[in-house]
Design a binder for these strands. Structure first.
Length: 874
DNA sequence: GCAAGGTC
């Protein structure tokens, strides 16, 4: 029997589609990566009986990156990222082992049906899947077609079965448009980000951002926030005047009327109208109108609307909301939370979904009434063809969901009930008056039937004082007429909900990525979230956007995304060539980049106002190994050391604290060591500021401290202080911390394990000899005579911390000892790893002559055409 | 260390 492999975009869809196609009779098992499942059943395919294997990927299989050597920020000129730097596809999530998984499942299959989401990204993933499985699939028989694409617009029985009966082919042009998008985003984003980061971080000490990033989505997102900030700053309050009239009838209390002219911006004119109106003693009723109006029930809920309401009404940020929604979804409380669709599928079981909510005390009355009276037809919404709208899937109580989980579930459920409730109906009464020759009016709403606002009380019609009963021709007594002086107010900072709306309107990001972009501008310290989830740009955010305005406003305008998308759509439609569009667009941005680099002084002028130069920041800490002058320690993110004489900056570990280490120096480069200390467990080790960024030996990587240094003789190195292999992790070595007394300890140089030993010992040293049983380094311990725990009043003992009987009670290895492989079953050894000595790998770095890296860019003066190029001007 | 897009 032949086999048909079918692949969906995510595990949940593979399951629903398999269930529909197999009519509920498939058998399921987990795949080798633990994340994807395989659902199998037999059925018929192209007139033959076959075995179906339905499985999925988890989004993109591959992601694009530069080849390794172009990821070195110190050696690559960012301008090279536009064309010279080659890219390669890497597995998007190596932990998932997706390529291997697909190959295992595809081996021996005869046909493949691609059930990826029906959008451009899905089309692109089709080809990622095909690239993975092609080598292992059975070869076609003769001219048989073996690759099929299922096109579906909703996850309903009808749609899925129709798709299966009308299989097409994957669309290469749509896939290519995504390839182009990936390459453009990568090259443009990384080039600008690296340039900005290096330029400004090298100049300013208090930027408080470890990355000065740029991107076609995040930068316009920031732009929206700064645009509002600018409006607030440049706002000039204006005085205006309003004529207020109060009238009454009989013994009723006075009624304030609205002036037909609204407001005037000239006091004299306002006063003139007051004087005119004051000549009249009575207000005459000109008309009384009563209109029945309706407030529409909401459309079915999609992701973006959920994010908006969660932010504005629940005070929950988009990223957090999606995490909570994801949890509600995976535990079966709500349907899939990422969808653009606001229209229920035709066969959606609205009543069944409603019935599940009939016993929840918070809305049981409304639900029961709806079930008795019959539900209302939902409003027509948009079907994006992805997933059904977000709805509750089963009943829940507050205690089982936790606070935020419940609040979101509560909202989603109320929204669902509202979509099938009646509209809210109210009566709008408007009475118009004339006072002299000036017109006034008042209006009020009275509720006829609450409809959906019963479950969404915050949407309800506010209770108002009753309108007076009157008819045309009636007279009211004028109580007072006066001129009110008022002032226009500035707008407030952008709310997160408003930002989401703006992003959606301009096509910045997608429902899934909008939360990420908002999170980005917060994390990069461009924007802070104020009370009411209003977004206030920081100095850094403001300076960046104003800088782009000055140099090339297109870099921050929302059109930067849509203009590129337009080009990409041409590829998708087959109207433009992939290479040509890619080259053309890269060319434009390359020239924009060069112009930006040449004009960076314009942005720098703004930076200077808000930030202090690096040389003026920080406090002197350790000495430079080249000039032997003090370097300054800059604490602001990213913390680093700066030598103002050599004009060099050295990275430091980002977590934990840094202090000087007894003025000790690295034997390789003469830099003064600093001592790194972590907050929680008190782990500490020395770090050489130069070696940290420039590993001295081939087996070392960037970011290593002396506790991982394989220097053969230095007293601070792993070789001198390493004791034995870690008791928890595979590759770590427990390294003695000579600064830790009197609570002496050793700590793993790879993981978080800290082992305390020999508390209150006077002195602890690592000996040159090793334990005969386990190869760990022996330790020499000196105790004070008065406090020695050693037998027979001895003060000194040398032994192995793992094996020595006398040391046994003095080392906190109780639970760890069991895991220590060298102590299991009588000394089983792992290939001589005892102390982690790495003699063979000792190869000094090529040279230590501190050469400056010079970018190879063409000087501005020799470059033609250094002007801003407009996006796709014809 | 970088983008944006999928998804876990």
């Amino acid at each position: 029997m032949r086999t048909v492999l079918m692949v969906a975009e995510k595990p949940s869809l593979a399951q629903s589609i398999a269930k529909i196609l197999s009519k509920g009779s498939c058998s399921s098992r987990k795949g080798l990566n633990g994340a994807c499942s395989v659902h199998e059943y037999t059925g018929s395919f192209m007139g033959q009986s076959v075995r179906f294997k339905m499985t999925s990927v988890c989004g993109h299989v591959m992601s694009l990156d530069f080849i390794g050597k172009y990821n070195n920020w110190d050696k690559v000129d960012p301008a090279e990222l536009f064309s010279k730097a080659p890219t390669e596809k890497k597995e998007a999530n190596p932990k998932l082992n997706m390529v291997k998984f697909l190959q295992v499942e595809a081996k021996g299959c005869d046909y493949v049906v691609l059930w990826l989401d029906c959008d451009k990204e899905g089309e692109n993933i089709c080809f990622e899947v095909l690239d993975a499985i092609n080598p292992v699939m059975n070869k076609p028989y003769g001219n048989d077609r073996t690759v099929f694409r299922a096109k579906f617009s909703s996850i309903t029985d009808l749609d899925i079965c129709n798709a299966m009966n009308k299989l097409g082919e994957p669309n290469r042009n749509e896939a290519l448009s995504v390839d182009a998008r990936q390459e453009l985003d990568l090259r443009i984003g990384c080039a600008f980000t690296r340039f900005q980061t290096k330029y400004f971080q090298g100049k300013y000490g208090n930027l408080d951002s470890s990355l000065v990033s740029f991107g076609p989505c995040q930068t316009p997102t920031l732009g929206f926030c700064v645009e509002r900030h600018d409006k607030i700053q440049s706002f000039k309050p204006e005085m205006y005047w309003v004529v207020q009239a109060k009238v009454f009838k009989g013994k009723e209390s006075p009624l304030a009327l609205d002036w037909d002219r609204g407001r005037v911006f000239d006091r004299e004119v306002g006063q003139m109208f007051v004087n005119l109106a004051k000549t009249a003693r009575e207000a005459k009723v000109e008309s009384v109108s009563k209109k029945e109006k309706a407030k529409q029930r909401p459309q079915a809920l999609n992701t973006v609307e959920m994010l908006r309401v969660a932010s504005s009404a629940l005070g929950m940020g988009p990223q957090h909301t999606m995490q909570v929604a994801e949890r509600l979804y995976t535990s079966g409380y709500i349907s899939y939370p990422r969808t653009e669709t606001t229209h229920y599928p035709e066969n959606f079981d609205l009543k069944g979904t409603l019935r599940q909510q009939a016993n929840n005390p918070f809305w049981a009355d409304s639900v029961k009434a709806l079930l008795a009276e019959g539900i209302n037809r939902p409003r027509k919404g948009a079907d994006a063809g992805d997933h059904p709208p977000i709805t509750p899937m089963r009943s829940a109580s507050e205690s089982e969901l936790g606070s935020d989980g419940w609040r979101l579930y509560d909202y989603i459920t109320r929204h669902f009930i509202a979509t099938i409730s009646q509209d809210c109906k109210y009566l709008q009464t408007t009475i118009t008056f004339s006072v002299g020759c000036e017109g006034f009016s008042c209006s009020g709403k009275t509720l006829i039937s609450p409809g959906f606002t019963e479950v969404m009380p915050w949407q309800g019609i506010p209770l108002e004082e009753a309108m007076p009963v009157c008819e045309r021709g009636d007279s009211f007594t004028v109580d007072e007429i006066k001129l009110l002086e008022k002032q226009t107010n500035p707008p407030d900072y952008l709310t997160e909900a408003e930002l989401i709306t703006l992003m959606e309107k301009h096509g910045i990001g997608t429902d899934a990525s909008i939360p990420v972009h908002i999170n980005n501008v917060c994390q990069r310290n461009y924007v802070t979230v104020e009370s009411g989830r209003r977004l206030k740009p920081t100095n850094l955010g403001i300076v960046l956007v104003h800088g782009y305005y000055k140099i090339d406003a297109e870099l921050v305008l929302p059109t930067i995304r849509s203009a590129v998308e337009k080009q990409l759509t041409l590829i998708a439609l087959g109207k433009a060539n992939f290479q040509q569009v890619l080259q053309h667009t890269l060319d434009i941005f390359k020239r924009k980049f060069h112009y930006f680099v040449d004009s960076i002084a314009g942005m720098d002028e703004l930076m200077e106002v808000s930030f202090s130069p690096i040389a003026a920041s920080g406090k002197p800490l350790s000495r430079c190994g080249k000039c032997h002058r003090f370097m300054k320690y800059i604490q602001a993110k990213p913390s680093r050391l700066h030598c103002s004489h050599c004009d060099d900056t050295y990275s430091l570990p980002q977590m934990g604290a840094i202090k000087l280490y007894k003025e000790l120096r690295c034997p390789l480069d003469d830099f003064e060591l600093v001592l790194w200390t972590s907050g929680s467990k008190g782990k500490s080790y020395p770090v050489c500021p130069y070696c940290f960024s420039n590993p001295p030996f081939r087996d070392m990587k960037k970011g290593m401290g002396c506790n991982e240094c394989t220097h053969p003789t230095c007293q601070h190195s792993l070789n001198s202080l390493g004791i034995g292999q870690c008791v928890e992790c595979e590759s770590g070595v427990l390294v003695f911390d000579p600064t830790s007394g009197p609570k002496w300890r050793m700590a793993c140089n790879k993981c978080n394990v800290v082992v305390h030993f020999f508390e209150h010992a006077h002195k602890v040293q690592v000996a040159a000899d090793s334990c005969e049983a386990c190869e760990a380094s022996l330790v020499v311990v000196d105790f004070n005579k008065a406090r020695s725990p050693l037998p027979d009043g001895e003060t000194q003992h040398t032994g192995c911390v793992f094996c020595d009987a006398i040391f046994q009670d003095l080392v906190e290895l109780k639970h760890a000892t069991m895991r220590h492989p060298m102590h299991r079953g009588g000394g089983a050894r792992r290939g001589g790893r005892g102390r982690g000595r790495v003699k063979a790998a000792l190869q000094p770095r090529e040279s230590r002559d501190f050469k400056l890296v010079v970018y190879e860019g063409v000087p501005a003066s020799q470059r033609k055409d250094s002007k801003v190029l407009h996006l796709f001007d014809q």
